[in-house]
Simulated scan of single mutants.
Amino acid sequence: MGNNMNYSADVSEDIKKSVLKRRGAAALVTALLAAGTLAGPTVVEAVSAPSHAPGSAALLPTDVVINRDVTFRGGVPVGGWYSLSIFPSGAYNYSGHMHDSGWPSYNFAGACVVRFANGTAFVFETAGRMHGTGESGSRDYNWNRSATRHSIRDAYQASGGGWNARCTSKVNADLNALVNSTIQGVGYVTQVIAILA
């Protein structure tokens, strides 16, 4: 009977140690997130509401997937959507649709910056014109770009999948200024790789 009691005590000690290790690991992850060492998806958009709470994080995701509806304030009659998917293989797809339903024409500029935990930032940018009622031409601006980049695959592997992102969309704005401000929003960057759509 004494042996059984010792065995039970040993099992209890092992369970206690396991629980303490898990608590320690959870505390470490929380501290790393707070310090900005680890980052999950956080999307900020000047003209469209995010579909999840700012600051929500998914540690070490398999894929980067950002889908947003876009509307503009101030009575601007332009709206649409965009989607960005990036995969550990290095494959990506950046697509979207914007529509001008008003009288004036507009130039659209959009940028998504995805910074992996190793500091490499990928800039997905697009720009195009939508014609209003007062000008001949298409009311729509569409883009769809898919390819595979070894540099994306390498950044995934070097970062263990950790990433942070920021996307912005504007009308009648300078694309270069939009891209630069979006890059600044993702934190410290060691390398920038541009991908045009």
Rank of each mutant, 00 (worst) to 15 (best):
S85F: 06
S85Y: 05
I86K: 09
I86Y: 02
F87T: 11
P88W: 12
P88M: 09
P88Y: 08
S89K: 04
S89I: 00
S89M: 03
G90S: 09
G90A: 05
G90T: 03
A91P: 01
A91M: 09
Y92C: 10
Y92K: 14
N93P: 02
N93V: 14
N93K: 15
N93S: 15
N93E: 08
Y94C: 07
Y94W: 14
Y94F: 15
S95G: 10
G96F: 13
G96Y: 12
G96I: 05
G96M: 11
G96L: 10
G96A: 12
G96Q: 11
G96T: 05
G96W: 05
G96P: 04
H97V: 05
H97L: 10
H97Y: 12
H97S: 13
M98R: 08
M98H: 06
M98W: 04
M98A: 11
H99S: 13
H99L: 15
H99D: 13
H99P: 01
H99T: 12
H99R: 14
H99G: 05
D100S: 13
S101P: 02
S101M: 10
S101N: 09
S101V: 05
G102H: 04
G102Y: 04
G102S: 09
W103V: 15
W103S: 14
W103G: 10
P104L: 12
P104Y: 10
P104T: 09
S105P: 03
Y106L: 01
Y106A: 06
N107C: 08
N107L: 14
F108L: 14
A109F: 02
A109I: 03
A109G: 11
G110V: 09
G110Q: 07
G110W: 03
A111N: 11
A111C: 15
C112Y: 03
C112L: 07
V113D: 04
V113K: 00
V113G: 00
V113L: 02
V114S: 06
V114M: 04
V114W: 08
V114N: 04
V114K: 10
V114D: 07
F116P: 04
F116L: 08
F116I: 05
A117L: 04
A117Q: 14
A117G: 15
N118F: 03
N118R: 11
N118M: 07
N118P: 02
G119F: 08
G119T: 03
G119I: 02
T120M: 07
T120Q: 12
T120I: 11
A121G: 00
A121E: 01
A121K: 00
A121V: 02
F122Q: 01
F122T: 00
V123Q: 01
V123L: 00
V123Y: 00
F124L: 11
T126K: 04
T126N: 12
T126L: 03
T126P: 00
T126M: 06
T126W: 02
T126Q: 09
A127L: 05
A127F: 02
G128E: 05
R129I: 03
